[in-house]
């Protein structure tokens, strides 16, 4: 720390790092342990749905969830409010 350091703008980047990590780690934990085919399945479903309705690129959500004894493939598609 030198005499004129107070003239330089402060670079407080740790909070940016923390916020970015919170988001990416949460996202990656959600997909952890999921089968490898999920991203491709999601992409192909999106292609098919787009033929019929106008949806956003992130409209299709595919998850594998455990319900008791069974694995359930949970697919949800978000549509626009006014089609």
């Amino acid at each position: 720390m030198g005499l004129f350091d107070f003239l330089k703008p402060k670079k407080e980047t740790a909070s940016i790092a923390r916020d970015r990590l919170r988001i990416i780690v949460a996202q990656e934990r959600n997909t952890r342990g999921a089968p490898d085919y999920l991203p491709l399945l999601r992409r192909e479903l999106l292609e098919v749905i787009k033929k019929y309705v106008n949806v956003d690129a992130d409209a299709v959500n595919v998850k594998l969830v455990k319900e008791g004894e069974h694995d359930v493939l949970d697919i949800s598609v978000a549509l626009h409010e006014d089609p």
Binding site: K10, K11, E12, T13, A14, S15, A17, R18, L21
Partner: peptide, 11 residues
């Protein structure tokens, strides 16, 4: 960390 440049233990 004190200067806000590095993730803290708590972070």
């Amino acid at each position: 960390v004190a200067g806000g440049e590095m993730l803290s233990i708590q972070d």
